[in-house]
Design a protein around this nucleic acid. Sequence first.
DNA 1: TTTTCCGTGTAACAAATGTTACGAATCGCT
DNA 2: AGCGATTCGTAACATTTGTTACACGGAAAA
Lengths: 206, 206
Amino acid sequence: MIQDILSIHGFEPGLIQEIEEIGYLKKVQSGDHIIDSNNHEKVIPFVLDGLLKVYRYRSDGSKILLYYLEPAETCSMSITCCLEKKKANIQVVAEEDSKIWMIPNSNLDRWLVKYPAFRRFIFSSYQLRYDELIETIDSLVFTNMEERLFKYLLDTKQATESFEIHKTHQQIADELNTSRVVISRLLKKLELDDKISQQRNRIEIL
Amino acid sequence: MIQDILSIHGFEPGLIQEIEEIGYLKKVQSGDHIIDSNNHEKVIPFVLDGLLKVYRYRSDGSKILLYYLEPAETCSMSITCCLEKKKANIQVVAEEDSKIWMIPNSNLDRWLVKYPAFRRFIFSSYQLRYDELIETIDSLVFTNMEERLFKYLLDTKQATESFEIHKTHQQIADELNTSRVVISRLLKKLELDDKISQQRNRIEIL
DNA sequence: TTTTCCGTGTAACAAATGTTACGAATCGCT
DNA sequence: AGCGATTCGTAACATTTGTTACACGGAAAA
């Protein structure tokens, strides 16, 4: 199973073996915190199954959703954090029940040197996250809340592979950093436009 | 001169020699385009002197200022772009007259393997840009236009090492993706609050 | 069943931002 | 000096987003 997912990126057999030997499986439930400010253990999480959310939090307690991590992806913030021995103010939370292969950072630098596929993997991870951050900036600058909300629904649909979204208006508002009333207002509008239908705790995308 | 700037990052003598041999100096004037969608030459720009702006542009022509590049810095977007052979929709423009050491991408991968200091440099560049993008997201989400404007003025002051900013309201509006009228309104407010003083084409930070 | 709590709908208003329009001041050029 | 172009100030208004308050209905708990 782990071999299968790692070979997606064309990892060398030797690398796959090393990752298997040094890493360990972590099973988490929806809502669990995988990485936090408090725990300073230097590991990078490689998602085997499920869905993770990566937040950036600020000193005043507010936080921003940076991106989602899907299977076969990893968190580039954690990588730099490991390589640079720097504290990144990030938080990785399970959105669904997930299985994660936790890889201690001890061999990162050596792997970078030894395995070309690992280099490619790391750099394409960085690129992927860059693209997502820039897309976030894009949508903040150029689109209004209604579009951002609809995009959020579509993204959630894709990430969870389901047409139904089980979230309250308040939860959505928190993720989009606005208020519940605004979300209710806009969801009602989307409903009138026949783009969604909703019941309590449930939004269906049409 | 080039040795001096490269040694800031602790580059190995052999690496410095290679970079000197393979790279070339490019002098540009304020407003010149260094990297564009059209030219597909694979080089990474290393700033020796001056100030560059990195934009992301979109298909509809609109663009966003991603970050500034100061001396001894490089553009991580270009790096991934080189390594991944992928087209990044970025544009690098000279904000001031600048000197740039242009480094063809042919040896990037080999340098990553051979020189630890180069690995550290690349990864810390990535981290730096991440931090800036996240800070941008932060300010878009949590602060109003007045704060963003004042922060923009302070950043410009720092980047140009001058208390005077020679820009029109329209230019500032373009960089902050708003309209000229809004900027004029807010600058007037900052002036009344004794945070700045302004004349035509000139803003002074107090 | 009754009570309480949670999620949602909606009104009314406030604040921030965007848009259009026009006049005044200043600069560069002839 | 005179003229046109650029830059800025400001009013008036539209739109978007945020805030407060309250009602309703269903779900969960007592």
